[in-house]
Amino acid sequence: MNNKIQTSFVDIIDKIEGWVSSFIENLPNLIVAIIVMVISYYIARFVNKWAVKLASKRIPQNSISNLIGRMCAVIVVSVGLFLALGAMDLSKTLDTLLAGAGISGLVIGLALQGTLSNLLSGVVLSFRKKIEIGNWIETNGFSGEVIDINLSSLVLKEFDNNLVVIPNKTIIENPFKNYSLTSKMRIVVECGVGYESDLEQVEKLTREAVAGLYTSDDDSEIEFYYTEFADSSINFICRFWVDAENAKNKLDAKSVAIKAVKKSFNANDINIPFPIRTLEFNNKLNVNNTQNGEFASQN
């Protein structure tokens, strides 16, 4: 019994001595690994600040800039970790970490598929010049001013001051209309005049009313076209260009043009008819006709 105990103590002492010897032998490699990790940490901090500063010049969203900085820092630290493990001759451990990272990345990617899709879409939107903060856009049935593009969603402020939060993935996968990309918009005014109206005079008055509101720097003309013989009127459209960058400017311009055309028509006795239904009775009814028992009883 005593021999077994002594043998066990000897084995334990031998293992401890072996560990100490291995530690002393690998002490230079350990020091090198620690130095590599410290250097990589400070390099990662510098890279983080540099990447955030560089990204903020092109991306107005702080969340996206910070994300890019953190990703660059993680890459630097990961490289430092692999170099440190290599310096300590832990190649097998390095292979195990790489295999585990691949499996973990696959599991996390499947679990957070929607979240990662919105995150990547937010990064893509941040680099798109065709949609920026302050633009007036229309997408997915909503229209408003872009006030924020973050890592998960895009925020619109509508006419009524309500905020609409739209996932970034939805913006990427669906078309959108950006009113702020151009400085001009075409306004279309539709109207109808009575059949008794002088059509030449109507066209002249409409052109003059619109021309008195907006002056154009280019050669774009005011377009006027009669479109149809309707039930109660002869309908026409008038098209012209105005300086506008959002839907509100477009509505304002159309409203002003309609008031100007209506005022001009009133001053020149041009009738803008509303739908009229005429009832005509060709069979002369005689309520006193004694042959009709119903009418006779009423009399």
Rank of each mutant, 00 (worst) to 15 (best):
V188P: 03
A33I: 14
F127D: 08
G69L: 07
K184F: 09
K254L: 11
F142K: 02
V256E: 11
A253P: 04
I103S: 03
L98A: 14
S121A: 15
E203P: 01
D217P: 04
S153F: 09
W241R: 09
L110D: 01
V165L: 08
V107K: 11
G86N: 09
P275G: 01
N178A: 12
S152F: 15
W136E: 00
E294Q: 07
T93E: 12
D160S: 14
I149P: 03
K259H: 03
T182G: 12
P273E: 05
V287P: 04
N150G: 14
I34W: 05
Q113F: 10
S117T: 08
I147K: 01
L54A: 07
L90R: 03
S104R: 04
I172W: 15
T93A: 07
D148N: 13
Q291F: 08
V10E: 15
I59T: 05
C191I: 00
I234C: 11
K284Q: 10
I64H: 12
L151V: 03
I75W: 14
Y214N: 06
Q61R: 10
G194I: 04
I172N: 13
V20W: 13
N2M: 12
R239M: 11
I166K: 02
K57I: 06
F229R: 10
R239V: 01
T139P: 01
I24S: 13
L151C: 06
L205I: 00
L54H: 13
W241P: 14
I137F: 01
N289M: 03
E221Y: 08
C238A: 14
V124S: 00
N118V: 09
L285K: 12
L98W: 08
S65T: 14
S65L: 11
L251S: 13
K92N: 10
W136D: 06
I166Y: 15
I12W: 13
G212T: 10
D95R: 03
A253F: 04
S197R: 01
L205Q: 02
